[in-house]
Design a protein around this nucleic acid. Sequence first.
DNA 1: TGCCAGGCGGGGT
DNA 2: ACCCCGCATGGC
Length: 315
Amino acid sequence: MKIHDGKIKPDSVDLYYTLSTYNFHYWFDGEKGIVILDENAPIIAMVSIDGHYEIYSASIDTSIGLIEKMKWTLGIGEDVSGFYRLARSDPLLSLFASRYRGWRLRSTSLWWSLVIGVCQQNASFRQGWGMLYDIVRLYNRRVLIGDKPVLLPPKPTDILEKPELLLKARTGYRWKTIVNIAEAINNGVINPDEYQGLNPERIEEELTRIKGVGKYTARLAILLAYRKYSLPPIDRWLKRIIMEVYHVDSEHAEKEWVKRWKEWSGLAALAVTITLDAEPISKALERIKKKQLLPIKTNKPTPINLWKTSRQWTT
DNA sequence: TGCCAGGCGGGGT
DNA sequence: ACCCCGCATGGC
């Protein structure tokens, strides 16, 4: 049932960029997108790009702080001027900084952030997001928003009840890692609610205790779930780009990145994938050489058009 | 068709 | 501490 509505002042935030980037068609339609405020209850906000929102909850019991949570999830009120200041004079992201200044990271729960990370392991952009798309479709968890059913990501317990669906979702050998994460959260070995106040190094330590979760996956999850940007998730793809653009060797890539981006290293890493359309590495390097450093119009799936292109992925 | 890709852990040195 | 390999899939 609807428990609240209103309008947020997005301020300097562009809600279209923020809601559309790295999203699927069932969660963003070009005008409205969902923001999950409580994945268990569940409590969901339907947010329009003009700032109007409606909050729906499956139960009457409604916790306070929902509007704050919604704003936080969308990066409203977050001061990212430091990031854009650095980006302005950066050879990779200066164009992005002027064109996509209103973009903010849209947060997801630690659980789902980790699943996102696992699906990027040793896979192309297309393959990884295809897995995520299929996971959501196959587990088919739904909640009513008004009278309309909306898909939600599966809960850890859903995974533990039907782990075999992960193979149907073509996650391959990654299925085991996803089960490990679900178990860790279910057992309380991992406590997502306790980590917001910890420093990212400490969270990374905790998360990498899960077998199959390494440095890259942990850092991507920390970035997406807690908006802590100081530890960059640097994969083979970004490492090659750093070597090319900043003229450093493989061993110094991370050091150079952090030296340049400081506490914004994680956010900058994500921005690079957006501005280069997550192209495979050889294409990405060509784009850099040709100074095509803004997203292009294409029918192939990219971070900014995934919400449109994923429509034709129906399994 | 046979590579190989936005990781990772394990086993060898 | 390193190096190196296998790993499920799908896309090219």
